[in-house]
Design a protein around this nucleic acid. Structure first.
Length: 276
DNA sequence: CTTGGGACCTGGCTGC
DNA sequence: TGCAGCCAGGTCCCAA
């Protein structure tokens, strides 16, 4: 599932290829992929435009155009952007369906494939229309310990739910929330506003460390995530708890799986105690 | 404000 | 072996 480190990796991988290219053809194979505007306007707004730069906000991938518009992609659960022509797709992607294909003036192409068809694209005048309601970037300069403390102090819900809420902070999903809480030795059910200042400090560092390390390892290929050239990320090899139910923690205890707000949550009951 | 639930979506898994 | 039904979880939306 692509979260911040995966989308950042996709952006970094595409940075040497996309900027400067001009769209020559856009084929929308699955119209439900286009959230905004209509499919004809979507195509017309892209063809002939040149890519001026790439960006990322939370889990959204942003392609900026010379027209001033922005093509925005959200991969949701199973979306992938693959460079074409590409080698045979890995078997996890073999059944994914092609939803949109983009062709460029140099003959290259980019495919948006998505097994479960939950991903979406937008073409908008102002990217804030799509990403404007997101909370701060956890790796951004403005994301300080004090800001985290103030965000948490207003919420009584389990800390796990707060970390995954894109309106509070942007880019953390199920996997990295579990990893950050493990690293900070915080039980996922702890009410956010009940965290003592020292725990908030640990959590702040854990969020930054876990995300940075995952980016350095090019994202986590736990399910259908692959880089645009179909290579795997390696961040999942470093996971201590995420998707490791029944596995062993370094302390000798067993990683447990519980459900927090409808999401599978992995943690170590010995390292992450409730109430302190 | 919060919380819970459903909808979207389909491959892969479980259980009979 | 076949098949029904559940599960994964990011996001939005609605009801209480």
């Amino acid at each position: 599932m692509p979260e911040l480190p995966e989308v950042e990796t996709i952006k970094n991988d595409l940075a040497p290829f996309l900027p400067g290219k001009t769209f020559t053809e856009v084929r929308v194979e699955d119209p439900t992929a286009v959230e905004e505007p209509s499919v004809p306007l979507f195509k017309a707004g892209l063809v002939g435009r040149t890519i001026s730069g790439l960006g990322r906000r939370g889990k959204f991938f942003i392609v900026r155009l010379d027209s001033g518009q922005a093509l925005i992609v959200h991969l949701r659960m199973t979306g992938n952007l693959v460079l074409e022509p590409s080698r045979p797709l890995p078997k996890q992607l073999a059944k994914a369906r092609l939803r949109i294909s983009f062709r460029f003036d140099d003959g290259s192409g980019l495919g948006f494939i998505d097994r479960r068809r939950l991903g979406r694209v937008w073409l908008v005048d102002n990217e804030q229309e799509v990403v404007g309601k997101l909370g701060p970037e956890p790796l951004g300069e403005g994301f300080t310990r004090a800001l985290l403390a103030s965000l948490l102090s207003k919420r009584r819900v389990p800390i796990k739910a707060v970390l995954c809420d894109q309106h509070i902070m942007a880019g953390i999903g199920n996997m990295y929330a579990d990893e950050a809480l493990y690293e900070a030795r915080i039980h996922p059910l702890t009410p956010a506003n009940k965290l003592p200042p020292r725990a908030v400090g640990r959590l702040y560092q854990a969020i930054r460390d876990v995300l940075s390390e995952a980016i350095a390892n090019k994202g986590a290929s736990v399910d259908t995530y692959f880089r645009p050239d179909c290579r795997r990320g390696e961040a999942h090899y470093r996971f201590k708890v995420a998707h490791r139910g029944g596995g062993e923690c370094g302390c000798g205890g067993k990683v447990q799986r519980i459900v927090v707000r409808g999401r599978g949550t992995y943690y170590c009951p010995r390292c992450q105690r409730l109430g302190r």
